[in-house]
C-alpha cells in the first residue's frame, strides 16, 4: 500500500515535471521516465500485458519519436521569448477548469456504482470457446475482435497519412552512420535475440501474458535500431514489399473474419474447430504488420536536412 502511494506520487510528480520544466529536452526525458513509471504501475495493477506494451511502446518507441522530433526542431528563440508573456485571465480560467475536472472526476470515482454485469466471470465462462487460454488474447481476438480490427485500420490510416506527407517533400535517404565498432559487434548478437523474443512473445500470447502487440513492439524496436545504426534492412528499399507488409495483417484479419460470414455465420466469428489456428495466423500476420506499421511511423518522421537552412531566411 505504501509502495502504491509512493509510486502514484512519483507518477504525479514526474507528470508535473514534464509540464513545468522550462528546458524542452529535460521535459522529454522526464516524459520517457513517466512512461517507465507507467510500466511499473501496470505491474501493480496486475496487468503484465500492459506493462510489457508500455515499456516497449510508451517508454521506448514514444521516447525515440519525441527525441528524434526534438532533434529536428531547432530551439526556436522567437517562440521561447513569446512564451514568457503570461495571460493571467486564461491561466486562471484554465486552473479553475482543471480544478473543476479534478473535483468532478474525484466525486465520480468515489461514488461510482457497482457494475451490473460481472465481466471477469463472463470472460472465464467463455474462455474455452475462444480457442486460446489467455483471457486478454481471447478478448482482443475473439470477444472484441471488432475493436482490434478497427484499431489496425486506424494505425494503417495514420501511417498512410504520415507517408503521404513524407513523400510529398523532396526526399533523400537518411544518412547511414556507422556509429561505433562496438555497436556493430553487439548488434550481431542483439538483433537475432530480439527476433527470438518477438516470436516468443507471440507464441506465449495464447496462454500467458504476451501476444501480437507486444511482439510487434519488439519487432518495431528492432527495425528502428537497425535503421539508426545503419544496418541494412532486407527488402526495405522495395516499396511494393513495404506496402504489402503494411496491409497483410488487416487483409488476413478481414479474410479469415469473413470465412464464417460466407458460410452463413457472423463476421469475425472464427470458423468452428479452427479458432486457435485462425487466431494464431491472424496474430502472426498482425505482429508482422504492426511491427512494420510502427516502424513506418518512425520512418515517416525524418524531414529533409535542409529544412533548417531554408527556413533561416524566413525567420
Amino acid at each position: 500500500m505504501i509502495l502504491d502511494w509512493l509510486l502514484a506520487g512519483a507518477l504525479i510528480g514526474t507528470a508535473a515535471g514534464v509540464l513545468l520544466t522550462r528546458d524542452l529536452y529535460r521535459s522529454v526525458v522526464l516524459f520517457i521516465i513517466f512512461g517507465l513509471l507507467m510500466a511499473l504501475v501496470w505491474v501493480r495493477v496486475e496487468a503484465p500485458d500492459l506493462a510489457l506494451a508500455e515499456a516497449a511502446i510508451g517508454a521506448g518507441l514514444t521516447g525515440v519519436l519525441f527525441l528524434d522530433a526534438l532533434g529536428h526542431l531547432n530551439p526556436d528563440k522567437a517562440a521561447a521569448v513569446r512564451q514568457k508573456y503570461r495571460q493571467p485571465l486564461l491561466s486562471g480560467l484554465a486552473f479553475l477548469l482543471a480544478l473543476g475536472v479534478t473535483g468532478l472526476l474525484w466525486m465520480a470515482l468515489v461514488d461510482s456504482p457497482q457494475p451490473g454485469v460481472h465481466l471477469p466471470e463472463i470472460v472465464d465462462q467463455q474462455l474455452l470457446a475462444s480457442g486460446v487460454e489467455h483471457p486478454i488474447t481471447a478478448v482482443l481476438l475473439s470477444f472484441r475482435a471488432y475493436d482490434t480490427l478497427l484499431e489496425v485500420a486506424v494505425i494503417l490510416v495514420a501511417v498512410v497519412v504520415g507517408l503521404a506527407l513524407r513523400f510529398s517533400q523532396e526526399d533523400q535517404p537518411a544518412e547511414t552512420q556507422v556509429l561505433s565498432p562496438l555497436l556493430q559487434k553487439m548488434l550481431v548478437w542483439l538483433l537475432p535475440l530480439m527476433l527470438m523474443v518477438a516470436i516468443y512473445l507471440l507464441w506465449i500470447g495464447s496462454y500467458r501474458s504476451g501476444g501480437a502487440f507486444q511482439a510487434a513492439a519488439v519487432l518495431a524496436a528492432m527495425a528502428v535500431l537497425m535503421r539508426m545504426s545503419g544496418t541494412p534492412i532486407p527488402g526495405h528499399s522495395n516499396l511494393y514489399l513495404l506496402r504489402i507488409g503494411l496491409v497483410v495483417g488487416l487483409g488476413l484479419f478481414l479474410l479469415l473474419g469473413s470465412v464464417d460470414l460466407v458460410s452463413g455465420g457472423n463476421f469475425l466469428a472464427w470458423p468452428e474447430g479452427w479458432e486457435k489456428a485462425s487466431i494464431l495466423v491472424v496474430e502472426g500476420a498482425l505482429t508482422f504488420s504492426l511491427g512494420m506499421l510502427l516502424f513506418s511511423l518512425f520512418e515517416a518522421s525524418p524531414a529533409p536536412k535542409q529544412a533548417s537552412m531554408t527556413r533561416g531566411g524566413g525567420a
Binding site: 556509429l179 561505433s180 562496438l182 555497436l183 553487439m186 548478437w189 542483439l190 535475440l193
Partner: peptide
C-alpha cells in the same frame, strides 16, 4: 547479462 551488455553499450555510446 543483457542488462550488463546494454549498459556497457549505452555508456560507450553516450560517452562517445
Amino acid at each position: 547479462l543483457l542488462a550488463i551488455a546494454a549498459a556497457s553499450l549505452a555508456g560507450h555510446l553516450v560517452v562517445q
